[in-house]
Design a protein around this nucleic acid. Structure first.
Length: 923
RNA sequence: GCGGGUGUGUUGAAAUUGGUAGACAAGCCAGACUUAGGAUCUGGUGCCUUCGGCGUAUGGGUUCGAGUCCCUUCACCCGCACCA
């Protein structure tokens, strides 16, 4: 029987499904291990070979951990709400659920062919009402909570209400939008509506008016991480800034905790760094400047990280959008300021980003007073100051800040250096070193000493205080779209009110069209009876990250009707031990999930503060495109790559599936598209060679390689091995089918250890020491490599072992049986087949990982005495098997060393296969 | 501009703490068996050469010894980007 992968793979996939081989059940007698893939958005294009890379890697790890005796939870599901299905619905009138289900089915069948060990009984879909019930539930919990900054955790909003009733805002420590101050009497006198508005300032899920990313083409708002370079990540449409009232999540309250607990995670440094940058903690000082506008005076608070440079302030700058801007504009400057404001407002986000180098601004007419020097400085308005960060106002120190410097140069404002010996004639001196000068009491201090000294001074004078700022903003949580979770909120006399828990899930209503209404209301406004007890329901829906923020918890207990996850299940699985997915989620999903989890942790619904212990980022697989070269001026004549320089040619993408090792299948090319039917070729060496380039894998480049096709020609096990053999999982690389034969050959070679034609040739011969050594070397290597996620070297080690056993003619059961187990994580179908052929009746998955016996792998060594200048200087341990000539070579190579160290009284040089591992010196 | 990372044959890539660089594959060359093969097997394959020498982007340093550690320069990739 030859290695017939088609039959084998079909057979065992059916067997696994039927026997529920990979079903996970909570079992306190075995240690749990949770391996998770980032679940996919099921797009219409299906999977290409890049998608399964991470899934294969995590599947190998899961199977390995099972063999090691762990109870492995390895689930899969779908992030099923999303824009593409909805855009399709708008254009074709087909319900997004229909498109989504169809795409999911296709994903499932593609995944099934690869032979993953998922427990499909735990599948979740974010668009399923029984799933999004818990997304809505969490939202209500957030709505009914506030963040207590003293306890540093979320608390029920009722606690805040009773505090207000007793003492007003006195003694309240709560994260909020703006600092409010009122007494208990005032609070108690507020109307319901007023109370609701006050509480919105504190709720973790709240409605607030801010400047948001508005995407007109998608007619929805977007979160910061959904916008890149001023364009929407989905679709690439322009985005503008707009002030709107939106649901938001107070993620900023968790900034410090999100930052601090990064240290405890086994993530890559680059990913942690990305999150640190995104959170953007900055420690500085808020200082109050009095600003004179005509004869009235206003307090303007600025934020700076360099309060030590305050003696170098020569002007101040306000953000155009700051509410202070109109207040501080003098009547004579009003016309010019208004003109500037409208100029700024007209700019799209994209233009603003593109023009960061051009300096613009306008003088307000007011003057600020430096609280330390009493000096008067002009107050300018410029777009380089952002309203959303700090206080929206800065003190400008052009000598020591490059942005202020550029501004000062442009508008001819004075530049006063306050660090000794620095040259600011060409550029500012931003570095934090040097000795202070021109700075009153700070003179003579180093910059590093001056910063805390200036902070102390400012605080002691009561003109400012230390302050930590974060770049992280609250997440905009509503979308004016149809295909998302409805908010479980209704407006009772205009007051946003959550639905009672037993009314969840609030299911998405049917509507006739999926686009916004004519009056620009979200699509849900089209729904009939979109009310609760006669009150209108919220018409926006939740964003994509809502459903993906806690899905890993739902997998622990996916069918639970009365809780997101039962305490028993949560306590058993606890957290994701290994999470595999792409870096693109670094500042989106991976921040939101951590926030969401911390919130649930605060409320006691989950037992761990951090959801993802270890995280591996798999690299992206790019496409490798092929080209043919049409000779210009001809209809259909193509010249091979090597000869193209002799002609004037035009490069044309050709389907990579009709190209093998850059050689074009000319007949297939003629059939590929009608216009190529009578193509003529100028060949080199009888072949048509194509050009190639690395590009994104996409339909339009004809470079998409479908895993199904690979499974058809080579089998799933070959695909799995090849994707891993390509290189380190974390690394991005172009897909190139060249070389897949190598791993396919390896599998056939492995097979031939068991079968000679139809004859099963495994015997009960006692293995030789050399054979045992081969086996145990592999066990040791595989163990170490898999734990380190280094699969490509494991596979190499496997190839070496199989070549070795083939050469030795080893067919011993005692060797081959463990070999099958070792192979099973990588090539489960082959392993399963051979495992049963060896006479086993249970799945190879239930076997245990063979024990590694070091004794077999230790090289027998023999000690050589090395003499130098007639005197014995040291001894060398070399393998017994080493030929005398090789020994001499090795010893000779030590001569040089010996010359240097002879005087150092060497006692012994121990060489294990040729390496000096230890030089023992006489004391 | 700031932060992080990577540079090794024709190609994908290996190389415990510094210790025989290029394992394992792909490609290529030669041969064997075949009616044939994109099957299988064997041998060769970093570069220059006669001994021998040179080789891990570049230039320097530490060391008996450097792909690995330190500094310089260059190239590429990723992230952030007026964050005060």
């Amino acid at each position: 029987m030859d290695y017939n992968f088609r039959e084998i793979e079909k057979k065992w996939q059916a067997y696994w499904a039927e026997n529920k081989t990979y079903k996970a059940t909570e079992d306190p007698s075995r240690p749990p291990f949770y391996v998770l893939d980032m679940f996919p958005y099921p797009s219409g294009a299906g999977l290409h070979v890049g998608h399964p890379l991470g899934y294969i890697a995590s599947d190998i790890f899961s199977r390995y951990k099972r063999l090691k005796g762990f109870n492995v939870l390895h689930p899969m599901g779908y992030d099923a709400f999303g824009l593409p299905a909805e855009q399709y619905a708008i254009q074709h009138g087909i319900h997004p659920a229909v498109t989504t289900t169809k795409n999911i089915d296709r994903y499932r069948s593609q995944m099934d062919r690869i032979g993953f060990s998922y427990d499909w009984d735990r599948e979740v879909r974010t668009c399923d009402p029984s799933y999004y019930k818990w997304t809505q539930w969490a939202f209500i919990k957030m709505f009914e909570s506030y963040y207590d900054t003293a306890l540093d955790k979320a608390q029920p909003i009722s606690a805040l209400v009773s505090a207000f009733e007793k003492n007003g805002t006195e003694g309240v420590n709560a994260a909020c939008g703006e600092e409010l101050s009122f007494t208990a009497e005032q609070w108690n006198a507020y109307s319901e509506k007023e109370k609701s508005e006050v509480l919105m300032n504190y709720r973790i899920a709240y409605q607030g008016s801010t400047s948001v990313n508005w995407c007109p083409a998608l007619s929805t708002v977007l979160a910061n991480d959904e916008v890149k370079d001023g364009l929407s990540v989905r679709g690439g449409f322009p985005v503008e800034q707009k002030k709107m009232t939106q649901w938001q999540l107070r993620v900023s309250a968790y900034a410090e905790r999100l930052l601090n607990s990064l240290d405890s995670l086994e993530w890559t440094d680059s990913l942690k760094e990305m999150q640190r940058n995104w959170i953007g903690r900055s420690y500085g000082t808020e200082v109050v400047f009095k600003v004179e506008t005509g004869d009235k005076t206003t307090d303007v608070t600025i934020f700076t990280t360099r309060v030590d440079t305050i003696f170098g302030v020569t002007f101040m700058v306000l953000a155009p959008e700051s509410e202070l801007t109109p207040l501080l504009t003098t009547p004579d400057r009003k016309a010019e300021v208004d003109e500037y404001l409208s100029y700024v407002k007209k700019k799209t986000e994209r233009e603003r980003i593109a023009q960061t180098k051009t300096v613009t601004g306008v003088f307000s007419g007011s003057y600020g007073i430096n609280p330390l020097t009493g000096e008067k400085v002009p107050v300018w308005i410029s777009e380089y100051v952002l309203s959303g960060y700090g206080t929206g106002a800065i003190m400008a120190v052009p000598a020591h800040d490059s942005r202020d410097y550029a501004f000062a140069k442009k508008f001819s404002l004075p530049i006063v250096p306050i660090i000794e010996g620095c040259d600011v004639s060409e550029e500012s001196f931003d570095a934090k070193d040097g000795i202070m000068c021109n700075s009153g009491f700070l003179n003579g201090l180093t910059v590093k000493e001056a910063i805390p000294a200036a902070m102390d001074y400012v605080e002691s004078k009561g003109i400012g205080h230390r302050k930590v700022n974060y770049r992280l903003r609250d997440a905009i949580f509503s979308r004016q779209r149809y295909w998302g979770e409805p908010f479980p909120i209704y407006y009772k006399d205009g007051i946003p009110t959550p639905l009672p828990e037993d009314k969840l899930p609030l299911t998405l209503p049917e509507i006739d069209q999926y686009k916004p209404t004519d009056s620009q209301e979200p699509p849900l406004a089209r729904a009939k009876d979109w009310t609760y007890e006669g009150y209108p329901l919220e018409t926006s829906t939740m964003p994509g990250f809502a459903g993906s923020s806690a899905y890993y918890l739902r997998y622990m207990d996916p069918h639970n009707d009365s809780a997101l996850v039962s305490p028993e299940a949560d306590n058993y699985w606890r957290h994701v031990d290994l999470y595999v997915g792409g870096t693109e989620h670094a500042t989106g999903h991976l921040i939101y999930s951590r926030f969401w989890n911390k919130f649930l942790f605060d409320l006691g619904y989950v037992c761990e503060d951090e959801p993802f212990r270890k995280l591996i980022n798999q690299g992206m697989i790019q496409g490798r495109s092929n080209f043919v070269y049409r000779i210009k001026g001809t209809e259909n004549q193509y010249v091979s790559y090597g000869l193209k320089d002799q002609y004037d040619t035009q490069e044309i993408h050709v389907d990579v599936n009709i190209v093998t090792n850059d050689v074009l299948d000319t007949e297939a090319f003629k059939k590929w598209m009608p216009e190529y039917a009578n193509a003529e070729f100028i060949l080199e060496d009888g072949k048509y060679i194509c050009g190639s380039a690395v590009e994104k894998m996409s339909k339009s480049m004809y470079n998409v390689v479908n895993p199904d096709v690979i499974c058809d020609t080579y089998g799933a096990d070959t695909l799995r091995l090849y994707e891993m053999f390509l290189g380190p999982v974390e690394q991005s690389k172009p897909w190139d089918t060249k070389g897949i034969d190598g791993v396919n050959r390896f599998l056939r070679k492995f097979w031939r250890l068991f079968y000679d034609g139809d004859k099963f040739i495994v015997n009960d011969a006692k293995p030789s020491a050399a054979e045992l050594k081969t086996l145990h070397k592999l066990i040791g290597k595989e163990q170490a490599d898999i734990e380190a996620f280094s699969y490509n070297t494991t596979i190499s080690a496997f190839m070496i072992a199989v070549n070795d056993l083939t050469e030795k003619g080893c067919h011993s059961r005692e060797i081959l049986s463990p070999m099958v187990i070792l192979l099973s994580p990588f090539a489960p179908h082959v392993a399963e087949e051979l495992w049963h052929d060896l006479g086993n009746t249970t799945s190879v998955t239930d076997a245990s990982f063979p024990e590694y016996i070091e004794a077999y792998t230790v090289e027998d060594s023999c000690t050589y005495a090395v003499s130098f200048n007639g005197k014995m200087r040291f001894t060398v341990d070399l393998p017994k098997s080493m030929a005398p000539a090789d020994v001499e070579t090795h010893v000779r190579s030590l001569e040089q060393t010996a010359k240097y160290v002879a005087d150092m009284n060497i006692v012994k040089v121990i060489v294990v296969p040729g390496k000096i591992v230890n030089i023992v010196l006489k004391k």
